[in-house]
């Protein structure tokens, strides 16, 4: 079954010229870690807002666990947990009380919620801090409390909005470990991010959105693979012997090379979609007879970031 279904979802804020979400459609499989990737203002948070019943869609359909979020918000809320982008913990309560009251709002019985709170505080490395107030917690600790809180009613689908934005590397690694552990436990995780590395590392599949529209949806590796010239070979030559136009033409003529780019220092970068081992013999053959000596070779693969930039453009917004 699909944990999340979004069909032609549209959300237009009153007075805004463009819809924030524009006929967006995707499905998230049960047990999957699904990333919604996009620049600021792409419609990620709005999409999560609709899915978590905090915003009303203008059009289209959104279901979580098979339940229509617009028609039955109260039922949907029992299935989902939310880790918001901004700290919205209850500062009038201690850390443990934040967890206990959250579970009570969800109707979890007293003994059970105490057990879960103890266990989650332990898992989040907060066992010693349960009775502390929130005044003195760091951003990373607050994030862990919010994750623990969201898990108190054992949701089937967890929504995390920019889960590691603003965190130190240790906290980020911890959050990533949490996501993996949730996946092992069979919880579906939908996270929004603009960090490519995070999406590539954590997500089974990634939807790239911009201006409220879906641009691409696939496994991160597949998205990179489909990018033309996703592997680069950078060739360096003996100093003073820069490759001339003939060399350029010879390299361009190699069938598996998609693009040739001159680099500073007389280096040449080749773009290809093939494995480097497949391309290299032909490249060496093309260089032979030009009286030029190869001194170095760098192989690199483009990443999700390149896919992202290719799809969403480079301009600042």
């Amino acid at each position: 079954m699909n944990a999340v279904e979004v069909e032609n979802l549209t959300k237009k804020y009153p007075g805004a010229p463009q819809p924030a979400v524009d006929s967006l459609s995707f499905r998230v499989n049960s047990g999957e870690v699904f990333g919604v990737l996009g620049p600021n203002g792409a419609g990620k948070t709005t999409t999560v807002g609709v899915l978590t019943t905090r915003m009303r869609p203008t059009g289209g359909l959104a279901r979580v666990g098979g339940v229509d979020v617009a028609k039955e918000p109260t039922r949907v809320r029992r299935l989902l947990g939310v880790v918001p982008q901004r700290n919205n913990l209850d500062r009038s309560l201690s850390i443990r009380q934040n967890l206990l009251f959250h579970a009570a709002y969800h109707g979890v019985r007293r003994a059970e919620r105490r057990r879960r709170a103890g266990e989650l505080l332990e898992r989040m490395g907060l066992a010693e801090r349960g009775d502390d107030w929130l005044d003195n917690v760091s951003g990373g600790q607050a994030q862990r409390v919010m994750i623990a809180r969201a898990l108190m009613h054992e949701p089937r689908v967890l929504f995390m909005d920019e889960p590691s934005t603003g965190l130190d590397p240790q906290s980020r690694i911890f959050v990533h470990a949490c996501v993996r552990e949730l996946k092992e436990r069979g919880v579906t995780v939908v996270l929004t991010t603009h960090q490519m590395e995070e999406a590539a590392k954590l997500c089974d599949r990634v939807a790239i959105v911009d201006r409220g529209r879906l641009l691409a949806l696939d496994a991160p590796a597949a998205l990179v693979r489909e990018l033309p010239g996703s592997t680069t070979l950078t060739l360096s030559f003996e100093p003073g012997r820069a490759p001339d136009e003939d060399v350029d033409a010879a390299l361009t003529a190699v069938e598996t090379v998609e693009r040739v780019e001159a680099m500073p220092g007389g280096r040449v970068r080749l773009y290809t979609s093939r494995e480097p081992g497949e391309v290299l013999p032909a490249v060496l053959k093309a260089l032979a007879g030009h009286g030029i000596a190869l001194t170095g070779l760098d192989v690199a693969r483009l990443g999700l970031e390149d896919v992202f930039l290719r799809l969403t453009g480079r301009e600042l917004r």
């Binding site: 019943t53 905090r54 809320r77 989902l80 919205n88 500062r91 934040n98 009251f101």
Partner: peptide
């Protein structure tokens, strides 16, 4: 504070 959000996300 947005503290009320947790209650708005409860099944109430």
């Amino acid at each position: 504070s947005r503290e009320i959000e947790d209650r708005l996300l409860s099944p109430l």
